[in-house]
Design a protein around this nucleic acid. Structure first.
Lengths: 334, 334
DNA sequence: AGTGATCGTCGAAGCGCTTCGACGATTGGG
DNA sequence: CCCAATCGTCGAAGCGCTTCGACGATCACT
């Protein structure tokens, strides 16, 4: 492995000149620069990441903390991950993957060892113990999600309250007056994952504003969970004409069950789903949906982290506005 | 941030003694060791990863290259990823996540910069251009999958040929003589992902050995793909009594379609699926399946990498034996 | 009692890089 | 035409750690 001094020797310049060619932090003449670059290519030189980190106290690595749990749709998680990795690469950064189950210790380990420049944390809970820990680190961090008290940490997420509102408005616009919310698994609420609560709050508020009759219920995973949830809705609010489904994994069994009961979509029942595009379009009925912009949120999280690293931009909370995409699952009230 | 010399001063020893306490590479008296540990805890000392990497040329980081493509089931990919991360942590290593779309350049970048000690590469193709590139690196690597020519690189995977054989044997044991293979998306075959081909080869061989009548067909994603595939099978081999499904994403639309046609499982048609446990058990019919042991494969990949790093064990190919789990989708021929 | 080993510790070299200060050579403005 | 600012480059000082060689002390055998 050639070092920077091999390159310097080959190009007939000093080490520092090579360094400045690479970093652009001082002006270097075009000829020198060209000679250095030629030497670099010739020798196949790669700067040693550890040495660079030691000398500059910058690592060009971002930590990303992902949940392991299965109660949130796995492909959605993966979309966040790939968005973060892809965006990080555009800023010449790599991504170190941590799992949520390491908890606070994992954050402190990678931050304390100066393995990363910044941290991005997914699946934060309302009263997440990791938030005070993040505050103590010398690296900046960005949350994907919105805890009760961000304590000055930057947050990025979809505006779930506004999303619920938009969905209800859409349904109301089609004449629906009785709507039920099929929520995530109860474990998501219990865990204090705030997106579920924010969606529910938005749902409740908008329901009142629009003068709708609504009920809401969580939905256990699996076909049984869906059946129970539908049964609950039928008994609690008979005559429901539309479902707002905030649960990707319930969608398949839900459509199955409705077909089994002979209830057509959107003829007998309208559905609006909250899910990524690809999920909405891969089902037997193309679902009218509020998009989960995992790609945008992940990208924005990286951009926020970069802004923080460059010292610009006060951290704050960025909630992306919802996008409703009309497809085939939402009809007028018959 | 305290450094090792702060710790040394606080404990009244030399830097090297602190280092030896931490690494255990030289004997240190119990009292000294205790004093050093106390100082470390007191000061909240964390060794600087870059400095350590520079001095020792070891990073305690593994690279993991994941596919971005959607033609292979995303939750399965995620299972590999979490298995690798979890196993790596047991060996005090972290995981740097790369995406396949960076190709050879990504490998060379992280390896050239000495960011990682070893690389684990998922979704390798038959004639994968990354294999020669991996061979040129100074770090060892492990493939999850089996290329045409591993060129001396260690490989870990499920034995897909044996899996196909076991599945057919299972079906034959239930009296089935006409079986159809519902394969992955054509793009998986075209891309040269060998697991699909190995499964098909095992299927073909076992079919001959067992004297079965069989056909095989790839299956495009979505409900339409499934319908086309079923239509092809019906016309090509009427009287097929069992399906061997090597395509997680086809499972849901397949069961839908069969129900729509009024064909009961396993009454009219038996199914054996190749998929992870949780997929097999989350469908309306609990599927008899050959397990995709993503967790085991990921773990084994990490263990192989560690063995390589420690210089023990000649690299080679480890194919895990299949496990068939009987559930409710496979019945006797009626 | 003599002699290797081994134990327990220290000091120093060096890993490969960034960055600061210095310095001669150019510029540009007044 | 002079002075200050800028350009282009060099040398050296670290960044925080591991590891090698050295050395006195202890130990286990003869």
């Amino acid at each position: 492995m050639p070092t920077i001094s091999d390159v310097a020797r080959a190009a007939g310049v000093s080490m520092s000149t090579v360094s400045y060619v690479l970093s652009g932090r001082r002006p270097i003449s075009a000829e020198t620069s060209a000679r250095v670059r030629a030497a670099i290519a010739e020798l196949g030189y790669h700067p040693h990441a550890g040495a660079r980190a030691l000398a500059s106290s910058r690592t060009s690595v971002l930590a990303l903390v992902v949940p392991l749990r299965a109660d949130v749709n796995v492909p959605v998680i993966m979309q966040f991950v790939t968005a973060v990795v892809t965006a990080a690469r555009r800023y010449h950064h790599d991504v170190l993957l941590l799992t949520k189950d390491e908890g606070t210790a994992g954050l402190e380990r990678v931050a304390g060892a100066t393995m990363v420049d910044a941290l991005i944390v997914m699946d934060v809970e309302g009263d997440d113990v990791r938030i005070p820990a993040l505050g103590r680190l010398k690296q900046p961090s960005v949350l994907i999600g919105l805890p009760d008290d961000p304590a000055g940490i930057a947050c990025v997420d979809l505006d779930f309250a506004a999303t619920a509102r938009e969905c209800l408005t859409h349904l109301a616009g089609h004449g629906h007056r009785r709507v039920a919310l099929v929520g995530p698994s109860p474990s998501v609420y219990e865990r204090g994952t705030t997106y579920a609560q924010r969606f529910l709050d938005g749902f409740t508020d908008a329901s009142a504003e629009l003068g709708l009759e609504t009920v809401a219920h969580s939905c256990e995973p699996g076909a049984d969970g869906v059946r129970d949830c539908l049964a609950w809705i039928d008994s609690e609010q008979p005559g429901t004409t539309a479902l707002l489904v905030h649960n990707e994994d319930a969608l398949v069994p839900l459509l199955d069950e409705l077909r089994a009961r002979g209830r057509s979509v959107p003829g007998d029942l309208s559905i609006v789903a909250v899910c990524p595009r690809d999920v909405a379009t891969s089902l037997p009925v193309k679902l009218t949906s509020a998009d989960i912009p995992a790609h945008d949120v992940g990208t924005l999280a990286v951009e926020t982290a970069m802004a923080l690293l460059e010292g610009r931009k006060a951290p704050g909370t960025r909630l992306l506005p919802p996008t409703i995409i009309e497809r085939d699952s939402c009809g007028p009230l018959s």
